[in-house]
Simulated scan of single mutants.
Amino acid sequence: MNIDVAIVGAGIGGLTAALAVPGRCTVLERAPAPAADGFGIQLPPNATRALAALGLGPALAAISVRPVARELRRWCDGALIGRVPLGAEAERRYGAPYLAMRRADLVRVLFDALAPGTVRFGARCVGAAPDGTLRLAGGAVVRAGLVVGADGLHSAVRGALSSPGDAARPIGLTAFRAVLPAADPPPVVTVWLGPGRHVVAYPVPGGRNVVAVTAGPLDGAFDGWHAPVRDMVRAAGAAAAHEIRVRPALPAWHRGRLVVLGDAAHPMPPFIAQGAAQAIEDAAALASTVDDLTAFEAARRPRAERIAAASTAGGVEHHLPDGADQRRRDQRIAASGLPDQDWLYCR
């Protein structure tokens, strides 16, 4: 089988690349059907601006809500530490909205924007080579003019670029995710910071997405926290557990006819809500540098690595024990505002 552009993975980055990259793209996806999970995702302005440029602005508006602010609060009493506006003021500043939605709805919008037959489900890549050859489960071989590995943290394509010791490793934290039914959830992204753990909640259509991050089991992890947080975590019940893992930096994101993007290139912990946004930025950048993969990596790698470092640092800062470091962190948060987000959202 010969393909012009083979994109491995029908997640957010892969589907965006299929929309953005010129030429005939075929997306190879191991799953038998589009993802159907209903957990939430935040899309900051740097992501929504790129998707709007692909003509998806109205479709995104139809499946999303617009949080008016991000609030950071104390774990023990819910006291406000700092607040950053995310509504109309942020949209005016960055030319695009900050949106929250269900991940499966976003995947559906991307999928529906593609020509029928672009995505081939049930096609699991088990190996790739820099000459554009892909091996699929079952023995099939695909040859492509360009291979784009958008197959996530456990990427099979990445193996053509990595060295021994590249396996994903846990960082010792688990994210427990749930969507609580809510007709009128608070219109803000709220993050409660506490010793060794934190909780995030934000509105999505028809509910409130809750993510509790801790080092051990969820049961009892938030005893002693502010009562509304404790009650919300308990209401999440048997939340889905996702162990947070990272991988070392790749020596290069491309070789020959092969390139990786998103989590396959630069996985990052989810502490500043930029993982999907960076995959979208990668896809948009690849569209204009598809004939020069060196230029693609030079344009994208410094920014992605800076954001990955900030995400890693966020996991430490979110979890500071009460004390002098925590008070200094809170003072920095209280003094920050929307302009401090420019480096993230202006891209």
Rank of each mutant, 00 (worst) to 15 (best):
H226A: 14
A175W: 03
G40K: 05
C76Y: 14
P267T: 11
A50D: 09
P339A: 06
A241W: 12
L80C: 11
F121R: 00
M101L: 15
G315K: 03
D291R: 14
D223E: 13
A123P: 02
V260R: 09
A265E: 07
G95T: 06
V199M: 05
P170K: 02
V189M: 10
V259S: 07
V148T: 13
P22F: 09
H226T: 03
D77K: 13
R328K: 12
R257Y: 04
P181C: 03
L86F: 11
P203Y: 02
T312N: 06
D330T: 09
A104N: 11
W253L: 12
H254Q: 15
I81W: 00
G13M: 02
Q278V: 01
A273G: 08
P58F: 13
L173P: 03
D322L: 13
M268A: 14
G11V: 01
V157L: 01
V142S: 10
S162V: 06
F121L: 00
V210E: 08
T214P: 00
V126D: 01
A201M: 10
V210G: 09
D105Q: 11
Q42K: 06
M232D: 13
L161M: 11
Q42S: 12
C346Q: 14
R197Y: 02
C76P: 06
P270K: 06
A52L: 02
V65M: 11
V142I: 15
A299R: 15
A276H: 00
A287W: 11
D342E: 15
V229A: 08
A215R: 14
R230L: 14
Q331C: 13
P44T: 13
P34R: 05
V179H: 04
D282Q: 10
E243I: 14
V211N: 10
G149E: 01
A236C: 15
G40C: 10
A50T: 04
C25K: 12
V246M: 15
D37V: 11
T26Y: 02
A33M: 01
R74C: 08
R300Q: 10
A298R: 14
L51V: 07
V5Q: 10
A212C: 07
L51F: 10
P130C: 02
V199S: 04
R169E: 14
G165M: 02
L320D: 01
P339V: 03
A201L: 04
D325T: 12
H254R: 14
A168I: 06
G55E: 06
W75M: 12
A17M: 03
L60W: 10
A249F: 09
A31R: 15
A36C: 13
D291P: 01
P267G: 13
C25L: 05
P67V: 02
A104T: 09
T16W: 07
P248R: 12
A295S: 15
A156T: 08
R102V: 09
R247E: 09
A298V: 08
T118F: 03
D37E: 14
L60D: 03
L250D: 07
G149N: 07
A279W: 10
G11T: 09
V21C: 07
